[in-house]
């Protein structure tokens, strides 16, 4: 069971309090009516399938209730960073570093 750092509660807490909420940094288009069918399709359905660091949304649903962003390595299943909604994605660590992230933190 993972421990996830909630950027609002500022605590590392059991995964059971959280839920996954899809890929991060996909903003709803300002004016959907102006979207072409292809643009709208991409917004609805096209998602990356990363082997490595993946920016995603999580919600501290059984805690403070806030959605937040996380950068997680899909191979090691380790969280590299969590950050508030609206903040920019931090730069990924170089490949191969994720193994030791927990040991250094």
């Amino acid at each position: 069971m993972l421990l996830i750092h909630c950027p609002y509660c500022k605590e590392k807490l059991p995964e059971l309090e959280f839920e996954y909420a899809g890929q991060a940094h996909i903003a709803r288009p300002e004016n959907p009516a102006e979207q072409t069918d292809a643009e709208w399709r991409d917004y609805l359905f096209i998602r990356s399938n990363v082997r490595g660091d993946h920016a995603e949304q999580w919600r501290h649903s059984h805690g403070c209730g806030r959605y937040f962003n996380a950068l997680r390595n899909t191979v090691s299943d380790k969280f590299i960073a969590t950050y508030e909604i609206g903040q920019a994605c931090p730069t990924s660590h170089a490949e191969g570093e994720e193994n030791n992230e927990q040991l250094e933190s």
């Binding site: 509660c9 059991p14 059971l16 309090e17 059984h62 805690g63 209730g65």
Partner: peptide, 12 residues
Amino acid sequence: AELKSGRGVRTI
């Protein structure tokens, strides 16, 4: 043990 006296949280 990390929940100190006088504090409360939503949890599971």
